[in-house]
Write a protein that binds this DNA or RNA. Structure first.
Lengths: 146, 146
DNA sequence: TTTAGTTATATCGCGCGCGATATAATGTTA
DNA sequence: TAACATTATATCGCGCGCGATATAACTAAA
């Protein structure tokens, strides 16, 4: 077995696994909110700035529009966002939060920080480790995004 | 907007994005091999130790068997692995590499380290940064896996 | 102004991940 | 040994991600 191909030596497998497990850790709180993790990402983008075209949301999340469009359609069915044709550019669909979508921010604020805190109490990483991790991940992300 | 819910402050979003982008970076080489990234993970597990039951492969990858079973079925169709009923325990399905599956290790060795190296040449991270990153990811993974 | 090119969004198909459930084989206990 | 619990694998349904393609609207050039 080539050492270069050993799974334990792979950063990618660790990223793949850590991303899945952390997303799973969000799931109980998100289920209480009635949404999925990618839907939560969209909500965070809209809480930061409401009324954005599909493209801006996709760029913010580094996703393709063919991922985001069906996501938004599901969120519209849930009554969380609404979509309207753009006025000046009729190709655009402007996505905005409904009242329900806006109110979910407070609920998320109650549930998620404490919920994640509980699950990570036994994690040996300290604040500066998380900051370092964030920097390292940003370096990889910035290198690989086009 | 609550600072705790800002997307830029989220480790989870970085993990989610970094995992997707690194997997995407593997894709050109894996396409040449005719497989996907999760299939590559299974191959690495089997290159390390051939002839394993479904459960052992799933545990190694921290995946559920209902993810791994269809993955193995697709790999069997591709002629990469074969599956046989276990002798002592007839519930088990023992997964083993075919000749094609074994030979793919050399091809992967030619393609993947250099292919990934090229894409990460502009990445500012050094060897010790990657080692640190691996440790931090392992800390998160070990905390969250049950 | 017609033509050609670009952009914003959508649709389709397929391979994951995973919760829920089913089924068969093994283990355990009364 | 009969009844029950456990284990290994499989099936189903659904929500992503994303490559490929389609369509409508805007832009630029002839």
């Amino acid at each position: 077995m080539h050492a270069e191909l050993q799974i334990d030596n792979q950063i990618c497998f660790r990223l793949y696994t850590a991303a899945r497990l952390v997303t799973q850790a969000y799931t109980p709180m998100l289920t209480e909110l009635g949404i999925t993790y990618p839907q939560y990402l969209v909500l965070m983008v809209l809480w930061e700035k409401d009324c954005q075209p599909v493209n801006d949301i996709a760029h913010r999340l580094l996703l393709e529009t063919n991922t985001v469009t069906p996501l938004l359609q599901r969120m519209e069915k849930l009554g969380i966002v609404s979509r309207m044709k753009g006025k000046e550019d009729k190709r655009q669909h402007i996505v905005s939060l409904t009242e329900k979508g806006k109110q979910m921010e407070e609920k998320a604020m109650e549930l998620i920080p404490t919920g994640m805190g509980k699950q990570l109490t036994t994690c040996p990483l300290k604040l500066e480790d998380y900051q370092l991790l964030a920097q390292e991940l940003d370096a990889i992300i910035n290198t690989l995004k086009k």
